[in-house]
Computed example of a mutant assay.
Amino acid sequence: MADTYEKLLEDSIEIAAPTDKVWSLVTDIPAMAKWSPQVVKSTVKGGIVKQGATFSNLNKQGIKRWPTGGKVIRFQPPAGATPGDFAFRIRENRTIWSFQLEPTEDGGTRLTERRETPDGVSGLSLLLTKVVLGGQQGFTDELRRGIRQTLERIKAEAEG
C-alpha cells in the first residue's frame, strides 16, 4: 500500500528547559523555518500567534517549493503540572500538526510533535504527493525525519 498515508506520525524528545521556555519556541510560527527542514518561511496574519490565528507557509523539498495555509486550532499554554497543547490545521491537506509539552520531574520538558489526519488527507494532496513529491512512503519517511530534526533543533535552542 505504497500510496496510502499514515494516520499518525509522532516523536518525542526530553529537553532540559522549563515548559514555558519551550512553549515560547514552539508557538513562534515565524521561527519554525529555523527548526523544520521543510519550512522556508511562515508569516502570521496580524503577527500574533493565538487561538484562531491564521498563517501562510512556504514549504520545500529539494528545489521544489509550495505554499500552504494554516490555522491555530489549539492554544493551551502549560500551567504548573498541566501540559501545554499547541496545534494547527493545514488548509490544503487537512492534516493537524501539534506540539504537546509535559513537565518532567527534573524541571525539564517532554516535547511531542505529531502529524494527525483525523479527517483524512485531501485527494489533491494525495495526488500531488504521488506525482510531485516522490510518493507517500518516501514523503512520509521525509516527514518522520523532519519531525525528529525539528525536535532536536528546538531542544538545542531551548538548552543553548
Score class of each variant (00 low, 15 high):
Trp35Phe: 12
Thr82Ala: 12
Pro77Met: 03
Gly52Pro: 01
Arg91Glu: 14
Glu157Pro: 07
Gly108His: 03
Ile13Gln: 04
Phe86Asp: 00
Pro37Asn: 03
Leu58Asn: 03
Gly134Cys: 05
Thr150Trp: 02
Gly84Tyr: 00
Thr68Ala: 10
Leu143Tyr: 10
Pro67Gly: 11
Thr104Asp: 07
Thr140Tyr: 08
Ala87His: 00
Val49Arg: 05
Leu126Ala: 12
Ile13Met: 07
Ala158Trp: 00
Leu9Pro: 01
Glu92Gln: 10
Thr4Ser: 14
Leu9Glu: 02
Ser98Gln: 01
Arg65Cys: 07
Gly123Phe: 10
Ser36Asp: 07
Arg144Met: 11
Thr109Met: 00
Gln100Asn: 13
Ile48Trp: 10
Ala17Lys: 05
Ile154Tyr: 00
Thr140Ile: 14
Arg94Phe: 08
Glu157Val: 07
Arg91Val: 13
Thr4Glu: 14
Arg115His: 07
Gly108Tyr: 02
Phe88Ala: 01
Gln51Arg: 04
Ala158Val: 07
Ala2Met: 13
Lys7Glu: 14
Asn57Leu: 13
Pro18Gln: 08
Lys41Thr: 11
Pro78Asn: 01
Thr54His: 08
Asp85Phe: 04
Leu25Ile: 14
Ile63Leu: 15
Leu124Gln: 15
Gly160Ile: 06
Gln61Met: 15
Ile63Val: 15
Leu127Ala: 14
Gln100Ile: 11
Thr117Asn: 06
